[in-house]
């Protein structure tokens, strides 16, 4: 099964008070050196069929009209390979 990931982030010029609240909490918890935090949303879409250009075009349309509000948010669309071992960064 194919997975497509859509990441949605507030545009850089839009204030992110939630990210700021997280950032301000970090020093209290002993995590120093983080100068900025921006909080966003990640959508993992499982596709029935192949991830071809047509499917990606539909997903971009979906992201633009629904998953993101492009007045205040930017989005990126990427395909995630489903084979084992490709979830980079998941190792603990």
């Amino acid at each position: 099964m194919a997975r497509v990931v859509v990441d949605v982030m507030l545009k850089p010029e839009i204030l992110d008070p939630q990210g700021q609240a997280v950032q301000r909490a970090l020093p209290r918890l002993g995590f120093d050196g983080i100068t900025d935090v921006r909080q966003g949303k990640r959508f993992e879409l499982e596709l029935e069929g192949p991830v071809d250009d047509a499917a990606l075009a539909r997903i971009r349309e979906m992201a633009e009209s629904f998953l993101a509000n492009t007045v205040i948010e930017d989005f990126t669309v990427r395909v995630e390979e489903s084979a084992e071992g490709t979830t980079a960064g998941a190792a603990s």
Binding site: L10, I14, L15, P17, Q18, A21, N69, V71, I72
Partner: peptide, 15 residues
């Protein structure tokens, strides 16, 4: 959200 009016409403700046 329906684009009948421009702009958007975001979380209050003081949360």
């Amino acid at each position: 959200e329906s684009h009948l009016l421009p702009g958007a409403l975001t979380r209050n700046d003081h949360l």
